[in-house]
Design a binder for these strands. Structure first.
Length: 433
RNA sequence: GGCCCUAUCGUCUAACGGUUAGGACAUCGCCUUCUCAAGGCGGCAAUCCGGGUUCGAUUCCCGGUGGGGUCACCA
């Protein structure tokens, strides 16, 4: 079956850092392109020189790279004015667009408005288009009037540049946010004036804040950079975003990139907006965190943590946090400083200091090579059962950590090592005599 | 407000006329356990409302209501 190659594009405007909603749009375009063996274009919509900023462009590029969303071609609309100019001239000479001398809408007395702009001659028809996700959508375009498509031959506006680019770049599928639905009819009007093919549209639902409004900065973290900074893993974020508004029709929740590419389909995209749920992202990130090499935890430790110790403490931290940053915060808070140096022990927390003597004797009896949590446990448990688990084990914990809550004392002992464990126990035992 | 889109547990969602309305996150309980965490098991929890169509509607149609988007010489 001969099919035309799929070409899609992700077209952010560099007026802010990459929003998670935009990242999801990029992801859906990417998945669709990869699945269809097609091409994906990144196009910066920076026709508005005032609002566009190269720092934001850099952030977007950086974020996409972090997410490992790669593109086949990259364009910048600000570098394509000659192309738009030619198309504009073509429309003007054909009479389907014209230079307008006055502000025909005359809606306000905005000083920035100038007298001369280029408008499209709007035939004022009903525009009907098929949306892959929503089906038929219909608009009456008469109320649009002869809308402005360029400020001048060298200053095209968004709608015009989009249409020219999608046409010139051979874009077959326009997959973008739902907020563009009402932009679509006027873009179709421009396509018809230009006599170019209409791409296939797929408008995906928006990502919402918990109050169901459009997710924005006032709701907290919205940019990919922020989530990155909070210690989320790129694959976890991508996986979460994929599941926001899309599902495979099975109970699978965790996907590798290739599974996503294989299973993705536009017709399983949701119609309604979806609230961004941090709890679920946290859960997914934990799932990813335990599937990834432990070496990524190395950075959460300050320099004074020996690398051998880092490796031993990592599993303990990993089961207590959702992100790398939380782990870092935990370490910085001093929660695990007892691994570095003996803690100050509050004698009042010691349930039964008298058990220390026997505990020490038992621990001394373990051959150095066997000083592992399982063996330590088997040596200590009979005594703990006899003298009271809380008495023996809680006392041991408090001596080793200075805390009432911590990992189990056997694991603690193993990490500290036989010599250090015994030293701490003996010291407190002697002090309490 | 006009226009457009939309509507299943608190949240993300499954169901494409017939199911005890399923799963996940969160929450609650139990188990495991000296503590915390993790883990295992289980519970609570939804079809917005009103009309149709149909033997039968979560599902199809209409209306209402709620929510969202958009109404620039921004994108």
């Amino acid at each position: 079956m001969p099919t035309t190659p799929v070409i899609v594009r992700f077209a952010p405007s560099p007026t802010g850092p990459l929003h998670v909603g935009s990242a999801r749009t990029a992801l859906f375009n990417y998945l669709f392109a990869k699945q269809m063996g097609g091409k994906i274009i990144l196009r910066f919509e920076d026709t508005d020189r005032e609002r566009s900023n190269s720092e934001f462009e850099a952030d977007i590029l950086e974020s996409l790279k972090w997410l490992e969303l790669d593109f086949d071609e990259i364009y910048r609309q600000s570098e394509r004015t000659a192309i738009y100019r030619e198309a504009l001239e073509k429309l003007i000479s054909a009479g389907t667009a014209y230079i307008s001398k006055e502000d025909i809408n005359n809606t306000n007395n905005d000083k920035t408005k100038r007298g001369e702009v280029i408008r499209l001659r709007n035939p004022g028809q009903r525009i009907i288009f098929q949306d892959l996700i929503r089906g038929e959508i219909s608009f009456d375009t008469t109320e649009l009037g002869d809308f402005v498509i360029a400020k001048s031959l060298d200053e095209p506006l968004y709608h015009f540049a989009v249409v020219v680019d999608d046409w010139q770049m051979g874009v077959t599928h326009v997959i973008r946010g739902e907020d563009h639905i009402s932009n679509t009819p006027r873009q179709i009007l421009i396509q018809e004036a230009l006599k170019v093919l209409r791409p296939i549209y797929a408008h995906i639902p928006l990502i919402l804040a918990p109050d169901r409004s459009k997710l924005s900065k006032r709701h907290g973290a919205v940019s990919v950079t922020e989530y990155r900074g909070q210690g989320f893993l790129p694959d976890a974020l991508l996986n979460y975003l994929a599941l926001l508004g899309w599902n495979p029709g099975t109970d699978q929740e965790i996907f590798s990139r290739s599974e996503l590419i294989k299973q993705f389909s536009l017709d399983r995209i949701q119609k309604g907006g979806a609230i961004f749920n941090l709890e679920k992202l946290n859960w997914l990130n934990r799932e990813y965190l335990r599937r990834v090499p432990e070496s990524i935890w190395d950075d959460i430790f300050p320099n004074d943590w020996p690398s051998a110790l880092r490796a031993k403490v990592t599993p303990i931290i990993r089961e207590r946090v959702s992100t790398l940053t939380e782990g870092h915060t935990l370490i910085e808070s001093g929660e695990y400083d007892y691994f570095l140096a003996p803690p100050i022990v509050d004698k009042n927390l010691l349930k039964a200091p008298t058990t220390l003597s026997k505990t020490i004797t038992l621990l001394e009896s373990i051959p150095g090579a066997d000083f592992q949590s399982q063996i330590i446990k088997s040596v200590l448990m009979p005594y703990a059962d006899e003298a009271g688990r809380a008495a023996v084990l809680s006392t041991m914990r408090v001596v080793l950590t200075g805390k009432e809550r911590s990992p189990d004392p056997f694991t603690l002992a193993e990490i500290l090592g036989q010599a250090e464990t015994l030293a701490r126990l003996r010291k407190i035992f002697h002090d309490s005599q």
